[in-house]
Write a protein that binds this DNA or RNA. Structure first.
Length: 481
RNA sequence: GGCGCGAUGGCCGAGAGGUUAGGCACGGGUCUGCAAAACCUGCCAGAGCGGUUCAAUUCCGCUUCGCGCCUCCA
């Protein structure tokens, strides 16, 4: 089955066919590193993560570039307010961004170029545009792109220039531009920029916002690449302007497909500081939720649908994850129970090798799960359909327990395969403190002696320590509550 | 004003022109010292009004409501 995606450019679903072989080159708009990124930012990065993981699952080679915007109004303001040099100021937030990606188990892209490292490439594009008459310099030293000279301007956003008038907040006091809608390629030096300044053939200044993405994508992916993604808000003007600059300069197609992620809302409202519903990832973690739980929340709604983020659903997701973990743990125990020996690890990996050699077939229910999952994800990343298949599979899998160890191993391998897409399926190994194990064992002894009061007391103590104990045929099982 | 998206059960959220989505929560049962988990089972749907059709929650139109973009916000 082929992967179908919704292309913003055509406003229809299309089959993904890379420009070259089975190699997908994708560019994803990254963070502006002026602050800790908020959960809305991560919703978009999560969508891109699911996309890249699905492409790899489908057998495509993926080269992903995600930029770091480290020079713009906000980073400059932050750097001036804190009295730190721009590079030093943004460094902190760059590092925080990478930490957050780890927390959410987002796979790293192949390249994370910073805007300030690609200034020469940006200048080169602007020079090309000058040569083609697609750039002009204004009196204040800025360089603009004349959109009237690019007839296809508006093709992505489906904006016709006539409709852009009434009601739109087009700044009328932007002097120096030939047309109010022309956008800046280069911003002439302003005193407010302090020491944030570069030389260029047309004078001192700094790059415009849009040009950085054109420069960085071209540098790593070539003049034409396969897939460009971002938040819906980027469609206009950012991506429209990227197309104008890039196609204007190169005279060839910029990106074959465009995918855009809808916004996240909190409690049904647009997230904003004034409404008090604005959260960085770190703030949600501080409320006691794990990266894995937040990942589940952010990935679980189709990317083109607004995601309503609530703490209630985050809590509900915890129970759903526990259900998945319960099943996975039982499967692991089944594998372990028939390979009990001091060299458990070795045996397991041997078994695993043997399994792949012999290709122990998956039971019917697991094959159905995999097929339904793939069908759903192939349909423009229908994650809800995929999760439905997963939970149906868990239901059937629970019924199929106990299973023999070879089957369990095959199921376990399927789980690992699916986890390469979902990134939350394999539960984190929890280290059980020794004294809790002792308490659990003491409780078993108390139960044998029919001293149920003592057994309950021990269970309460374990609960108070933040764990739960379950009685299973294989003995007591401790889980983090 | 222009462009676009959406409205499903207590909550979250899919697919399909006639056949169980799924998750969370809740009710009953099996198992268990009691629990937990698991299993069985129940429960509650598709904004409103028209139209097409043998049949629509699913297609079309209108209305209402919500949301996004319209110059640097993912």
């Amino acid at each position: 089955m082929s992967f179908k995606l919704y292309n913003t450019m055509s406003r229809t679903q299309e089959e993904l066919v890379p420009l070259k072989d089975s190699h997908v080159r994708m560019y994803t708009c990254g963070p502006t590193v002026y602050n800790y990124a908020h959960i809305g930012n991560y919703r978009a990065y999560m969508f891109e993560d699911l996309l890249r993981r699905w492409l790899k699952y489908k057998g495509f080679a993926v080269t992903q570039v995600q930029n770091l915007t480290d020079v713009d109004d906000k980073t400059i303001r932050g750097s001036r307010e804190t009295g730190l040099p721009l590079r030093e100021y943004t460094q902190k937030y760059k590092e925080a961004f990478f930490e957050d990606l780890k927390t959410l188990n987002i796979e790293p892209a192949e390249f994370y170029p910073a805007a300030t490292d690609c200034i020469p490439e940006m200048i080169a594009i602007i020079e090309k545009l000058f040569a083609k008459g697609l750039a002009y310099k204004s009196d204040d030293g800025s360089v603009y792109f004349p959109i009237d000279k690019f007839p296809e301007y508006g093709k992505l956003a489906h904006l016709d220039r006539e409709g852009m008038r009434a009601g739109a907040r087009v700044a009328q006091d932007e002097y120096d531009k030939e047309n109010a809608a022309d956008f800046a390629l280069w911003k002439g030096y302003d005193k407010a920029d302090g020491d944030v300044v570069w030389d260029s053939p047309w004078g001192k200044g700094r790059p415009g916002w849009h040009i950085e993405c054109s420069a960085m994508s071209m540098k790593y992916l070539g003049e034409s690449f396969d897939l460009h993604t971002g938040g819906v808000d980027n469609i206009f003007p950012h991506h429209e302007d990227e197309i104008a600059q890039s196609e204007g300069a190169n005279g060839c197609l910029y990106s074959k497909y465009w995918m855009h992620c809808a916004h996240l809302q909190v409690d049904g409202k647009k997230m904003s500081k004034s409404l008090g519903n604005f959260y960085t990832l770190r703030q949600v973690l501080e409320k006691g939720f794990t990266g894995r739980e937040i990942r589940y929340e952010l990935i679980g709604t189709h990317y083109r649908q607004q995601l309503n983020f609530t703490f209630a659903s985050l809590t509900a997701n915890r129970a759903a994850l526990a259900r998945l973990d319960e099943f996975y743990t039982k499967v692991q125990e089944t594998i372990g129970s028939e390979t009990r020996s001091p060299k458990l690890e070795t045996q397991n990996s041997e078994l695993e090798t043997r399994n792949s050699e012999l290709e122990t077939p998956l039971p019917d229910w697991a094959q159905t799960l995999a097929a339904r999952f793939e069908e759903a994800l192939d349909d423009d990343l229908n994650i809800a359909g995929g999760l439905g298949a997963l939970f149906d599979g868990v239901h059937e899998g629970n019924k199929a327990l106990p299973m023999d160890s070879k089957t369990a191993l095959a199921v376990s391998n399927l789980w690992k395969k699916l986890d390469s897409v979902l990134g939350f399926l394999i539960p984190p190994a929890a280290e059980v403190p020794a004294e809790l194990i002792e308490m659990a064992n003491a409780r078993v002894a108390a139960k044998k002696a029919k001293n149920f009061a003592e057994a309950d007391r021990l269970r309460d103590a374990i609960t108070a320590a933040g764990w739960t104990v379950q009685d299973t045929p294989a003995g007591p099982k401790l889980k983090k509550a």
